[in-house]
Write a protein that binds this DNA or RNA. Structure first.
Length: 351
DNA sequence: AATGCGTGGCC
DNA sequence: TGGCCAAGCAT
């Protein structure tokens, strides 16, 4: 048996004993999983931790058990359920994908067919093809990049090393149980071959691992230096009027695209006046860190004198901060604290 | 090819 | 505590 085959065999034996139990997962050797659940979980897991995804996955599948159910949901409903998970383009693409899949009568079962759908790229198409359709596709995500970089002691920094990593990952992908192999690589990366202080002593691949042999495991993969994060500033207006609160749906593209939000300005490239005349008072500052900048958002609270020029007044009784993205939840929390004595806000807030 | 795009947890 | 990191995709 060749070295590369031994790697797959040893990893699958480890997975048979140590696979994590996850809501979207079929036990090792249990065959293929429901493509809808595989797809939904993989999209949610893009750049997102398992711990953060679990609750969202359970709520989505309870609300929409089949892809046809999700396809029939309203845009705003899906955005509200996604709120807090981040990377909101995923939610918009999720719905577009569900509708495309429903229109064509089910998920395509090939890499190329899957990759043509919105929100499904090289990683996700390979994951669905392998896990749901038992195709011998090679899945390359952040875990696989780390495991392969160490296994073969690749010292070229990411992202330049990607082509080499992909070729080596393909060379260890087995023809049988490709889905279990993909999930095994990810479990290994998540639990043993971790970014810092990898647990080489209990790793099923420690014998063939070149980085371990060279004492380099914790130093790989090397990465190109990151750019500094600029600091941005902005304002957000939380407007109240007769038991209603002023909200708007953000433009479909760009920062927090398509999410429900309080009107704001200055931090996202926009430069806007207050959305309405009101006794605006600055009550605090929300601190938030996005992928490529940090933000100080000054929170203004006011009672409207007249109808707003943008946004929509929504009854407080029908408003839940859970439908807002994280940044806007922080702004709301500041307003909520500042008005602890005001009945207007709190009689409807059963936190 | 490099950049834009969230959030929470970790040490 | 601030930087780093997590099952990437679109453009």
């Amino acid at each position: 048996m060749r070295d590369r085959e031994v790697i797959a065999k040893d990893l699958l034996e480890w997975y048979d004993r140590h696979a994590r139990t996850l809501p979207w997962r079929v036990p090792p050797g249990g065959g293929t999983a429901d493509p809808y659940r595989v797809w939904l979980s993989e999209v949610m897991l893009q750049q997102t931790t398992v711990a953060a995804v679990k609750g969202y996955f359970l709520r989505f599948t309870a609300l929409w058990p089949r892809v046809e159910d999700l396809a029939g949901a309203e845009d705003a409903e899906v955005m509200a359920e996604w709120a807090g998970l981040g990377y909101y383009a995923r939610a918009r693409n999720l719905l577009a994908c569900a509708r495309a899949v429903t229109a064509r009568g089910g998920f395509p079962d090939t890499l190329e067919g899957l990759a043509a759908l919105p929100g499904i790229g090289p990683y996700t198409s390979a994951a669905i093809a392998a896990i749901a359709f038992d195709r011998a596709e090679t899945v390359v995500d952040g875990n696989v990049e780390r495991v392969i970089s160490r296994l073969f002691a690749i010292e070229t920094p990411l992202p330049a090393s990607r082509p080499q990593i992909r070729a080596l990952a393909q060379s260890v992908t087995p023809a049988t149980r490709p889905g279990d192999f993909a999930q095994a690589m990810m479990d290994l990366g998540a639990t043993i071959c971790t970014p810092r202080s990898p647990a080489c002593a209990i790793c099923p691949l420690n014998a063939p691992c070149k980085a371990r042999t060279l004492g380099l495991a914790a130093d790989l993969p090397r990465k190109a230096p990151k750019k500094p994060k600029p600091q941005r500033q902005g304002k957000v207006w939380i407007g109240l009027s007769q038991g209603r609160i002023l909200l708007e749906t953000r433009p479909a593209k760009g920062l927090l695209g398509g999410t429900l939000a309080f009107p704001s300005t200055g931090w996202d490239g926009s430069d806007q006046p207050p959305p309405a005349a009101a006794d605006w008072q600055e009550i605090g500052t929300a601190q938030h860190v996005f992928t490529h900048f940090s933000l100080e958002l000054r929170v203004l609270l006011g009672r409207l004198d007249s109808n707003p020029q943008r946004g929509e007044l929504v009854p407080l009784a029908g408003f839940s901060p859970n439908a807002l993205p994280g940044l806007m939840r922080k702004a709301w929390a500041i307003a909520s604290d500042a008005t602890a004595g005001l009945s207007d806000l709190h009689e409807n807030r059963q936190a």
